[in-house]
Amino acid sequence: MNYKFTTPIEMPRSTHYGNNYWIFESRKLHRRVTAYSNLEYENLLTLEMNPEVVYYCEQPCSTTVFVSGKEHKTIFDVYIVYKNGREEFQEVKYQQELDSDSPKGKRSQEQIEIQKMWCLQNDFPYVLRTDKDIEKGQYFIRNLSVLSAKARRFHIESKEADKAIISYLSKIKRTTIGLLSESGRFEINKTLDYLSDLYYRGIIKFDDICNDCLTNKTEVIFCGI
């Protein structure tokens, strides 16, 4: 599939208003991805580990919108393509930045309205994501970070092993990480590596991943293929 936006705009760190700076290897994109704030990184991490997302591009394009004869320029945070073909632009903001009384409130609101207008004119869905949408629970991002790191390094390369593991999980439907480790179907100390790969692909999910750390007691639920 040919995606409309594939080259991120380079943003000099010294001139970007955001704080912090992240670079990570994307298994989904086969390249390094850059985020310019903690929240942008967290959002990209959720896209990286969402099996419904087939493609995304950070800082995908700079555009200009004219409002009342005045030129307004803006850069979107991320462009996304889902399995069902839906394309989407997202802007990422902390909820407190949207407060009209905050130092960034007015600027943030103006930016959002400009982006909404451009998306409306160009027939793209537009989604505003805040920390309340992204940080779903105390442990969600922490767990995703662990799973993402393992999924980047480990792929189930043997088709026979992949088929056998999926067949086993499809029969039991629900179990724990600890019981899977004891089942003898995984290499010693590599159970979470296998499960991270399956989670990345959307074949399994973990129960209560938002509110508790991943442990041997964490339940694994088969989702199907």
Results as ranks from 00 to 15, higher is better:
81 V>Y: 06
40 E>V: 01
112 I>Y: 10
110 E>F: 10
222 F>P: 00
97 E>L: 06
12 P>C: 09
120 L>S: 14
115 Q>Y: 05
132 K>S: 14
54 V>N: 06
21 Y>W: 14
48 E>W: 06
223 C>L: 03
25 E>G: 03
17 Y>H: 09
159 K>C: 04
186 F>K: 05
117 M>T: 15
75 I>V: 15
67 V>R: 11
4 K>T: 14
63 T>Y: 15
21 Y>Q: 05
109 Q>F: 06
31 R>Y: 01
90 Q>W: 11
98 L>M: 07
127 V>E: 08
202 G>F: 08
191 T>R: 07
4 K>L: 12
33 V>C: 00
85 G>V: 01
132 K>T: 14
212 D>M: 12
76 F>T: 02
191 T>Y: 09
106 K>G: 05
30 H>C: 09
126 Y>W: 14
127 V>R: 11
135 E>A: 01
93 K>R: 07
169 L>S: 04
3 Y>C: 09
107 R>L: 15
27 R>D: 00
83 K>G: 10
196 S>M: 05
192 L>I: 09
155 H>W: 09
111 Q>G: 15
137 G>E: 07
13 R>D: 08
215 T>G: 00
84 N>P: 02
58 E>C: 03
217 K>S: 10
185 R>I: 03
71 E>R: 13
214 L>S: 04
26 S>W: 09
93 K>T: 08
120 L>C: 07
208 D>C: 01
118 W>E: 13
221 I>N: 07
69 G>N: 08
168 Y>H: 13
131 D>I: 06
184 G>T: 06
216 N>Y: 13
61 C>M: 10
149 A>W: 01
89 F>M: 04
48 E>C: 06
60 P>C: 11
146 V>C: 04
